[in-house]
Write a protein that binds this DNA or RNA. Structure first.
Length: 424
RNA sequence: GGAGAGGUGGCCGAGUGGCUUAAGGCGCACGCUUGGAAAGCGUGUUUAUGAGAAAUUGUAACAGGGGUUCGAAUCCCUUUCUCUCCGCCA
């Protein structure tokens, strides 16, 4: 979330940038926040004074008792009781108002970076880069859900029996290819300096709030009611939350992590060809990269992450393009996001396989993730993350783009991980 | 799941109602000392937030939340985590 002090000092900028997101009602909420915050601080000041007075009297009472002046002590006690009423009243007002401010802050999305183009939806995203050649397929080429059936490597119906739609079962070479991709991605990320971590796949409420999934967006996560825990929608949540309530030193930067986890998303809604097969699932695998950075370096890091993902896609031989998300398509917590899409030849469409974002201090503010700067003051760090990469659509693209009449070839870079070079 | 014991600063650890934001030690930083280092000595060493140009200073925080009291690290309730024993178990 944005900090109140920032909103207070940069109101015009905040409004201008939020307009790029088409964020409705911004001015109203911002004004309310500023007003209520001023009130809150005035109350706090009164409360502080009352507490100071009460502390003083309490000390007096202690001394009076010690010197045996009980009657005098009782007089002071009465006075102190009155202040106590005032304190408890001020306190409850303060808590109520502060809570209200926080609630309003939760409603405000991150302000977009100045590179973010205006726009309403995905059609307004800017294509900024494109690379790789689109293969010519034989005339009996199939979409991946047909290929999955033909070679018996992914069983969607079986998953439906076990759990429900959107929970596929990978079989044989399909399962091995998944495992190979996970290892391959993790190795590439490690080689680039990202430290591998294994994290819980279930998170508590505080973690969900830290990275912005909670409050308000709980409907997108699976909730384990009996323990009040959530299945992770992405490794971003547990990995970034490793740094919740942490005060770093400047020389701790940069912090780079990579993690493989399954991801669980309820994603209720859409049906049809666009969500067929592997295109949209309730459970899928993903290897994530996460960085915690000094604010001066975070955009540099974002570029590094983008370049890193490029090298993976080139090595896999998948044609891809990079989009800069427009204001209307930008996620709630992000300041700038680049999406990677690979071209699925058999479906004749682009599939999103990675999303790389700088959150600036938006998550850090919720996480209380700070560092001591050169002046010895604590300052919010910047967080970033990206998929490197999401498996199902990479798998779909490989199946579709590498199909031949004799079977599906395995990209060169993966063969040492799969142990086979053809699915037939 | 059952029974018991616990959670104090970067770390160890004292503290069972008032001069305790917290003894003592370790660690760390700076200074003195030294040819240099160690030891020794001295000074300093939490965070958040308000006021102030600053020195400084008010308030809050002893796992989290609530309560008793003029006053809580200390007493009560509750949540949570850790440890020990028992049970179950890959």
């Amino acid at each position: 979330m944005l900090s109140v002090a920032f909103i207070r000092d940069n109101k015009d900028l905040v409004l201008k940038r939020l307009a790029i997101r088409n964020f409705a009602n911004a001015e109203n909420i911002i004004d309310n926040i500023i007003e209520l915050d001023a009130k809150t601080r005035a109350t706090k000041s009164k409360l502080d004074n009352a507490n100071a007075e009460s502390n003083k009297l309490s000390k007096e009472i202690g001394l009076l008792y010690k010197s045996g002046e009980v009657q005098k002590a009782n007089l002071v006690k009465e006075k102190s009781s009155q202040i106590k009423d005032e304190v408890s009243q001020l306190r409850s007002h303060l808590l109520l108002d502060a809570d209200q401010v926080l609630k309003m802050l939760y409603e405000i999305p991150n302000i977009p970076n100045e590179l973010v183009p205006p726009g309403n939806n995905e059609e307004d995203n800017e294509i900024i880069f494109e690379e790789g050649s689109i293969p010519k397929l034989h005339k009996n080429a199939l979409p991946h859900w047909e290929l999955a059936k033909k070679y018996d490597i992914i069983d969607f119906e079986l998953g439906t029996k076990i759990t429900g739609a959107g929970f596929p079962v990978y079989k044989g070479k399909g399962a091995k290819l998944q495992r190979a991709l996970i290892s391959y991605f993790l190795d590439k990320n490690s080689d680039a300096g990202y430290e591998e971590v294994q994290v819980p796949h279930v998170i508590n409420e505080a973690s969900g709030i830290g990275t912005g999934q909670l409050p308000d967006k709980e409907g997108q996560m699976y909730h384990i009611g009996i323990d009040n825990l959530y299945l992770i929608p992405t490794a971003e949540v547990p990995v970034t939350n490793l740094y919740r309530d942490v005060l770093l030193k400047e020389n701790d930067f940069p912090i780079l992590h990579t993690a493989y986890t399954p991801c669980f998303r309820r994603e209720a809604g859409s049906y049809g060809a666009h969500v067929r097969g592997l295109n949209r699932l309730h459970q899928f695998d993903k290897v994530e990269i996460v960085r915690v950075e000094h604010p001066n370096n975070s955009y540099n890091s974002l570029d590094e992450m983008v370049n890193h993902i490029k090298t993976i896609l080139i090595e896999l031989g998948l044609p891809y393009r990079i989009l800069r998300l427009c204001g209307g398509d930008l996620g709630f917590t992000a300041a700038l996001t680049y999406d990677f899409e690979v071209f699925s030849t058999a479906q004749n469409r682009w599939l999103e396989i990675s999303s790389v974002s700088n959150f600036e201090s938006f998550q850090a503010n919720r996480l209380k993730l700070r560092f001591k700067n050169k002046d010895g003051k604590s300052q919010l760090a910047h967080t970033l993350n990206g998929s490197s990469l999401a498996l199902p659509r990479v798998l779909a693209a490989i199946l579709e783009n590498f199909q031949t009449e004799n079977g599906i070839r395995i990209p060169e870079a993966l063969i040492k991980y799969t142990g086979f070079d053809l699915i037939d």
